[in-house]
Design a protein around this nucleic acid. Structure first.
Lengths: 377, 377
DNA sequence: TTGGGTTTTTTCGCATTCGAATAAAAAGCC
DNA sequence: GGCTTTTTATTCGAATGCGAAAAAACCCAA
């Protein structure tokens, strides 16, 4: 038997993350992934197995040599809650310790909802999840709309909930549930969701395009989400647009590229026209569209994405939200238009792809937050 | 006496950096800055003093308690070379171990210079510096124009030196001088120069605006320079401009905002007009200018900076290069124009300042690279 | 079946790093 | 001047993490 006392909780958490993500499958690969020695890694793994967070699930014989003892996360060790909301609804997911989505809950919010009630409803969602999820709740991730101070756990501002100003959501929920609560902006949470549940698996640099009721982006550089000095990185929705004309009401990127605006432009109707009941379906109808409207929309997207690409020189743009219904062709049209407008992009390898995640990407991202933040007691 | 054997070279280097920058002035503050225990810090400092890299320069009595034993770097311990070049000239600086600029060398390059001769000339510059600098050369930093793979030490591409393609500059120079050689793009080196010699002292997030023969930016986020997946972050010069018109020859940001273009626009002459002999002086003449040309130039700058600000939400923009001759008022005009065009910026606290560094900022940045990379043998 | 080759895991001694306690150096205060 | 208070630096035992070497587990070939 080996010596027992180990303490670095943070490293234990990191080890679990590596195993859960599949980046590390054995003690040796885990050692490399964590950058610590194989001997120490052995101790950590022993500890985690003793505490029932990990287990050994068989052997993996390579072409030669002693086979690896495969490590995997113990699904029953507990679960993570991912909560995301906007002014209309809360979406919540329960994810087991292995990182598998087990349950989704959706809760509509009344019109003109206030911060207090949002928090209460968030707790309701967790309670609902807890009814079916196995084991203890380990931590909670929160995807919050608007400006967010992730470090402090405070929701700074959100236009569509009147009193959403300097709300210490994280503390409020932590005090009720007695588990760690981690906060992040909606869209930045989605960036994490891509890493854990979507296309961002092996990626270290990518940008999330989030056209919903407005237009914003989230950037991942070197594996880290960019926050900005004022927590406002990626808030490009208030770019004046079209750029060269003067500023004015309605002349912002929000009004040109949001999901409703995109539908209106494709449908060729003005701002007063009623939106379809189901916007996603409404958009899907245009998946095979052509013509000047299509060109115009793609052109605007191309311009914005082109500019972004030349600034931060990232690898991939992942399109999110309702507009994914427009499919691959939409992304391809944008790529083509961008390369036509900006010859420099041809070499740079511009790549735009629709996300494979659905409507609950935000909640999944919140769950990712929870997973990334957790470490054993 | 304490025990002697210490090995973590990297930590020793980091300790010297903290002392040199003035962030740490005593053993205790150094311990905090490095995130290691005071006891260990004591050992490291002893070692560095024994090796003549640091010394104790008196006491600093606080309001109470035992006074701090002030640590400082030993200027005579050696020196760093900072080299920067473009197609016209090399600039080189010698910086002593305390980080003080001691010497500058400038060497013009012949027209149509090739990579080989650039490298030879770089070595000539180092030799010239070595004649007067005291102590051993410790490391060399290189500010290279164009695309650069900093990690690999390779100059990838530069339009104005014909055979500047995949040049392993770092290795070539290292093999001659037998000291570490660190590479970085020109403008990104300037970003470091601001931190060590200029306005970026306490800053962790800022953007360098570099209008010279073209237009590019360098971004520092959380203390780290952003490189981009293809080493091309900040290469915004090929943005189509004016944005909404189609692409075309000469319709790029380069051609609107470069230093020569700015002069031409302010002077109201077309692209064929001859540039003044001394562009800096020529620009300085417009420092008190007004009128539609001034407005137009500031408007374009305002648009670009505004867009950038909303994307990466950084704290400060530092203007570099010849246009600093236009002074504070230029920056103020841009700020005003940006806030007029983009109401969102008013809250965000947009701040634009001219750099206090002169023409040798690139070389100083290269020297900063050298300092940051060095650690004792 | 036995022995070499290869890769993973563990053992074991060592030493760097830490923490708590101690010493040191000054100021203020009676 | 001695006392306490406060902050900085050092001492010293304890222990975490590392490296080298050994052990383990598997393949393959003779």
């Amino acid at each position: 038997m080996r010596k027992n006392p180990i303490v670095q909780r943070e490293t234990l958490g990191a080890a679990v993350l590596q195993v859960r993500s599949g980046r590390a499958t054995s003690r040796t690969t885990l050692a490399k992934a964590l950058g610590i020695s194989p001997s120490t890694t052995g101790l950590y793994v022993d500890h985690l197995i003793a505490e029932k967070y990990l287990n050994e699930s068989g052997l993996n014989q390579g072409p030669m040599g002693r086979p690896r003892r495969i490590l995997s996360t113990q699904a029953e060790a507990g679960w993570f809650a991912g909560l995301e909301f906007n002014a209309q609804r809360i979406q919540a997911v329960g994810v087991d310790f292995s990182g598998s989505l087990k349950m989704t809950v959706e809760l509509p919010l009344p019109a003109d909802v206030l911060a207090d009630q949002v928090i209460k409803s968030l707790l309701t969602c967790v309670a609902k999840l807890a009814e079916t999820m196995q084991g203890p709740l380990l931590s909670v991730g929160l995807g919050v709309p608007g400006l967010v101070d992730a470090q402090a756990g405070i929701g700074l501002y959100y236009a569509f909930i009147p009193d959403w100003n300097q709300v210490p959501v994280a503390d409020e929920i932590r005090s009720k549930l007695k588990v760690p609560v981690i906060l992040q902006n909606n869209l930045r949470a989605i960036a994490l969701a891509e890493r854990w549940f979507g296309l961002g698996h092996g990626l270290n640099d990518y940008v999330i395009l989030g056209p919903r009721s407005g237009f914003g982006i989230a950037m991942v550089q070197d594996g880290r989400v960019i926050e900005g000095s004022h927590h406002a990185a990626g808030e490009v929705g208030r770019w004046p647009w079209p750029l060269m004309e003067g500023a004015g009401e309605g002349k912002e990127l929000h009004h040109a590229l949001s999901a409703p605006a995109t539908w209106r432009r494709l449908a060729g109707v003005d701002g007063l026209a009623k939106l379809p009941e189901d916007l996603r379906a409404g958009l899907a109808a245009f998946a095979d569209s052509t013509g000047p409207e299509w060109e115009a929309v793609c052109g605007d997207y191309a311009r914005v994405i082109g500019l972004l690409h030349m600034i931060i020189d990232t690898g991939v743009f992942i399109l999110h939200g309702p507009l994914t219904m427009l499919g691959e062709r939409f992304c391809q049209s944008i790529t083509d238009a961008a390369c036509a407008l900006m010859p420099a992009l041809r070499e740079g390898g511009l790549k735009i792809v629709p996300s494979t995640l659905g409507d609950n990407a935000g909640a999944l991202g919140a769950a990712s937050l929870a997973m990334e933040a957790w470490s054993p007691a």
